[in-house]
Structure formats: C-alpha cells, structure tokens
C-alpha cells in the first residue's frame, strides 16, 4: 500500500514575543535609537516536538491528547496552513479538512453559495461542484435551508454542511477535528459511517477526538500527544488504555492538590 502522509520529526516553535510591534507606529518607535525601555524579549515555546508518523492510503489515525497538547497545531501543519519549524511533511493527494466549525463559511451567504466557495478552495471546478450539490444537500439534510444564509444555521446544521462538503469533494486524505461533537447522536453515527465508507475506498483518515471509544474501536492507529510530544503511537486499543491510565493518575493528583488547598483554607 502507498503512503499517503509522511510526518517526519515535525517540530513547531512559536515565538511568544513579549511586545511584538503590532503597528507601524510601534515599529517606528523601535527604530528610535537609545529609546527608553528594554529590548523586545522573546520566549520560544515548543508546541510540537519531534512528531513522526506515517499513514497509508485507506488507513485511519486517531489523534488524542488533552487541551493544549498540540493537536490543533499538528492539524494546522497537516492542512498546510502553518509551516513546521523543523522536520518535514509530505501529503500525497488531495486533502480535505473539517477543522473548525464553520471555518470557511461566510455568514451572509447561503448554504449553496458557501458550498461553491468551499469546494473551490478544495480545487473543484464549477461544473464538478454543481454535480455534487444534490449529494451534499441530501447528506446534510438541509433541503429546506440550503438557500438560507449560513448565519441563521444552528451549530448542528453548520457542522452537517461542513462535513458534507468536506467528504463529498472526493479527497484522498480527510482530516476531521472534533467538530463532529456538536451534531446529535444520529448524525455523529452517520458521519462515522461515511468516514468508514470513504476509507474503504482508499481515503486516509486523520481524526482528532475526545471520544476515546471511537478511536479505540474504529481507528487503525492512534497517536497520543501531550505537551507537544508523542507519548504513544501504535495500536489504538493500547494507546487509549495508556491514555486512560495516565488520566486516572492525573485526576488523583488533582484531587490531592485540591485537598491540600482546602486544608490550608480551613487553617
């Protein structure tokens, strides 16, 4: 089987500048020699460190980790909206992504107009998009609202439309963030079925989720990131098990901390 995604030693460093010049005025002010005050201090922050994995066509990878673990940064690098500081990434094939709720939707435009805009970002021509409209409308169950501006959509409707567009453009690699969590259970199930069915057709799936059971049972591989570093990578059952074990331990330390605080309060 061919490799769809190769992620090699990817690291991402952010410069947390204490005072970045946000305006030309500040920039000019910086240029004044011997001005008062300190030089701009920068603080490097590594959002990702040495993340490597590989994904073949028709395989799926679940990514888990706590908030702030670096999952979103990894996704941004995978969707090429951000560049890695170190390491390299190769995506072989058309990438489609469902990242943020309604990302890429323009609130003033109707569902139909947004389909055109979004699908053209994914590289489809007008005629191709027109051919896919019925499929998208049917899957998103928005028959009555497709010509309504997206700003009047509920978050569920938004997610449905986003998902329908992202999957119908025949991607070769599909990236899905937690957005599915907003849909109701029926729709979540429908989405999961769709994901698995396009995976059967040879599409690679990258799924970020807090739904550990989904990852453990439906994904081929799992990647657990914490503090920007890979904690575990491999069989999803084992990765999720390790994650749960760490989580249980983490909770006990939090409880212990809490008890300490309460005790000191009482004193």
């Amino acid at each position: 089987m061919d490799t769809a995604v190769t992620c090699e030693h990817v690291s991402k460093r952010f410069q947390l500048k204490k005072d970045r010049a946000d305006s030309v005025g500040q920039l000019l002010y910086r240029m004044i020699p011997f001005r008062r005050g300190q030089r701009a201090t920068t603080e490097p922050f590594w959002a990702l460190r040495d993340v490597s994995f590989e994904l073949k066509f028709g395989e799926s990878l679940g990514i888990i980790g706590h908030n702030g673990a670096g999952k979103s940064t990894l996704l941004k690098i995978l969707t090429r909206t951000m560049y890695p500081t170190q390491g390299s990434l190769a995506m072989r094939g058309k990438v489609s992504a469902l990242i943020e709720l309604g990302a890429g939707f323009h609130p003033d435009f109707t569902g139909r107009e947004n389909i055109y805009l979004n699908a053209s970002i994914l590289g489809l021509t007008r005629r191709e998009i027109a051919g896919k409209i019925p499929e998208i409308v049917e899957f998103s169950e928005l028959e009555d609202f497709i010509d309504t501006p997206v700003k009047y959509y509920s978050s569920g409707m938004n997610a449905r439309l986003g998902f329908a567009v992202a999957t119908s453009v025949r991607p070769e690699i599909l990236i899905v963030d937690e957005v599915l969590a907003v849909g109701d259970e029926g729709f979540q199930k429908k989405c999961m079925e769709k994901i698995l069915s396009i995976k059967q057709e040879g599409v690679s799936i990258l799924l970020v989720s807090h739904a550990l059971n989904t990852i453990a049972n439906l994904m081929d591989h799992a990647l657990w990131i914490e503090h920007g570093e890979v904690q575990r990578y491999g069989d999803p059952q084992e990765v999720v098990k390790a994650y749960r074990a760490a989580e249980a331990q983490g909770e006990t330390t939090i409880e212990a901390d809490l008890r300490k605080v309460l005790a000191s309060d009482r004193r």
């Binding site: 090429r80 909206t81 992504a97 943020e100 990302a103 890429g104 323009h106 970002i121």
Partner: peptide, 9 residues
C-alpha cells in the same frame, strides 16, 4: 481569517 484557518491555498 476564517478562510485561512480552513485549508491551504
């Protein structure tokens, strides 16, 4: 910004 967050183009 909302388009930039979506995908590379």
């Amino acid at each position: 910004a909302q388009l930039l967050a979506k995908l590379y183009f």
